[in-house]
Amino acid sequence: MWKTEKVDGYLRPKVDQVHRIKHHFFYLLVCAGLVACSRPMLPQQLVYSGYNISAANATDSTLGKLLQPYRDSVERSMSVVVGNASATLEKAKPSSTLGNFMADAVLQMANKKFNRTVHFSLLNYGGIRLTQLPQGAVTRGKIFELMPFDNLIVVQVLNGAQVQELLDFIAAQGGWPVAGVSFTIRNKKATDITIAGKPFDVQQTYTIANSDYVANGGDGAAFMRAIPQVTNGYLVRDALFDYVAFLQSQNMTISANNEMRINHVQ
């Protein structure tokens, strides 16, 4: 027990014990420190702000200067107008105007460039890299944004069972862009399949135009890896350029074909 005495009306430790307090004072500070440190800093409050970045924001000039030489050179090569869209094309599942346009380009150009009858074409949905192709002039840069990957067109020959497996896979994904084939999704399976205008025949073989990305198992299509590929170095993006140039040469525009090539039935 500590003995106390009254000094100036206050209760104080007795003088002979003050040195003990001093002696233990350092120890006390260390203890207080340890107690504080053993209690971690915890987040108690969180305020979230989501800033939309638009023309209302100020512009940082340093970054503007850093980008200028890159921008100038990109614009020189990418601002060339290659075609014209008479309507805004949209990306959607199971079928969409933008998906139909891209799959049409791949089907038509594959027929030409591989010099053989291709029955249908497909692209993976995630491979469409713009959500919209806006109405009006279409620049070279816009085609690059739509299809920035250097994916090749490959031609593959599938037996009936492989076609069914591929279309069931597309059905399970909720529908991918296709041309030359149409079907209805029932319980995540492809049914009522029509290929090149005729009912699907499981006894037949079919020739398809695919991207090397999907043919090599991309987007979960691992089963496609086993199927041989014919390739000639022709890019999906080049098919888009050539198809748009073909439309221009025919005085045609890129139009919104809203044909529902893939339908959903519950």
Partner: peptide, 27 residues
């Protein structure tokens, strides 16, 4: 968009469930 999360930290006890207090989140 740019996301911004402003945290306020205080000393507290990390209990058996890692955290004694619920974090108050406001937008």
């Amino acid at each position: 968009k740019l996301g911004r999360l402003d945290y306020r930290f205080e000393r507290g006890k990390r209990g058996k469930v890692e955290r004694a207090n619920s974090l108050l989140v406001t937008k």
